[in-house]
Design a protein around this nucleic acid. Sequence first.
RNA 1: GUCUCCUUCGUCUAGUGGUUAGGACACCGGGUUUUCAUCCCGGCAACAGGGGUUCAACUCCCCUAGGAGAUGCCA
Length: 487
Amino acid sequence: MSVRVRYAPSPTGLQHIGGVRTALFNYFFARSEGGKFILRIEDTDQVRYSDESLQDLYDTFKWLGIEWDEGPDKGGDCGPYVQSERFEMYKEYAEKLVEEGKAYYCYCTPARLDKLREEQQKDKKSQQGYDRHCRDLTAEQRAEYENQGIKPVIRFKIPLDGMVVFHDELLGDVKRKTRDINPDPVLLKSDGFPTYHLANIIDDHHMNITHILRAQEWLPSGPLHILLYKAFEWEPPLYCHLPMVMGKDGQKLSKRHGSTSLRDFIAQGYLPEAIINYVSLIGWSYDDSREFFTKEELEELFTITKLNKAPGVFDYKKLDWFNGQYIRKLSDDELKAKIIPYLAEAGCLENPPAPGQSELINGLIPIVKERLKLLSDIVPMTAFLFQDISGYEAEELIPKKQDAASTKEILQLGRPLIEKVGELDDEQLEEAFKVLSEESGYKLGDLLAPLRVAVTGSRVSPPLFASIRLLGLDKAVRRIDLAINKL
RNA sequence: GUCUCCUUCGUCUAGUGGUUAGGACACCGGGUUUUCAUCCCGGCAACAGGGGUUCAACUCCCCUAGGAGAUGCCA
């Protein structure tokens, strides 16, 4: 049977790194096996559901360039691919389980459950979880609850004794005593919606899913799922629990570690190539040295056998490095197109840029390309071209071991040479400054540093002469004069 | 508390009984360079601990410790 895998997010928040990695691994696995990758929306949590999350899901994967073979927007033979549209089905299956004595109605109120949990918290030694209060209700007791108008949930009867074993492609055989499984989990909520466990099993079965690649946080519910497959007399799929993605402190990656939503990464100017490449290397590797992979290569090379069992820490710095690498691989035109929105948003230019602005960007790309880690870096890096920079402190102008007077002299000495920026090329200018350095006794660095600050407002900038050409000679000279007056 | 999973440089990892334990990021030095960055060269740095098995353990087994996850009418 050919491979069918799915990504089954619940639209209750923005797509985050962990989820995306799970999706990617599923996608790569499907492609590498010549199988199908399916998207299913698990919108059974009506309380936390949001349209924005759903839109974010589509936006994110469009940006990544990942397409599913079947899904709500694509169609397919196993639809609908949205759980809320399969509502009736879950109820029928849950009730079937009740009829067969494998599940039961539970009338316990949330208040009772809260109280129970509270008591168990106090007495840590007691068994945690539901106390199976309604597991063996008589018909009379049930009728009474019904008369009170209580809407029941349906709970699954976890066998009181026995052992569940299932095979994980990565972890091997996972064994668990049934008494260690969360006692009688809810299958159908009182609002008639299924819980994750129920809907997941039913859909995976009906969608002919062959492999479940999901994060290891799901491992504890594996035995429950196996039990459910058994209850329905269905063949369970093959499991593979992926190592989790952690923050620097070793805990599950979350917002307090930094950006986690793809939306944030996109806004900061990460490239999809970098994200895909980096994320694929958390918990997976190819060999002892190769680490650059395109999406297409991963579609071919990915394999479960190279997965790692241990959780991996998300390293923002390495992602940044990858991003810089991929920015440098962009053509000038590609980089230009990606950078314009950032400059436009900062108010530096219009989008699309006016003709003169377009020229300016063309000139700016080559000097900025090897300096960018994030696309958004373009704004602070080139702001001096678009904005007034006169706000810097006079102190900034003065190189180490120089003072205001000597710096003033340096600027006055350098000014005439700067005026030749239009006629001379970089090499000639440099030569001219070297000559000046010898004649004046000032070090080359001390000569150029004040000019750099005068022109760009900062000690760190793109190459000076190129920057001046982009800025315009007139403006540059005016800024130098302004600097001289500051001292 | 209970259950389960995990454990090689700070981080991501290679390694499947015999290796000077390899690579990358980060970090530190040096070179190129008008600053920064790029690029190049070099360095630092790891098999959690203890028992076995074996002629031989990072590799296999057990224990301990540490970490993580789960323990919901959330997924």
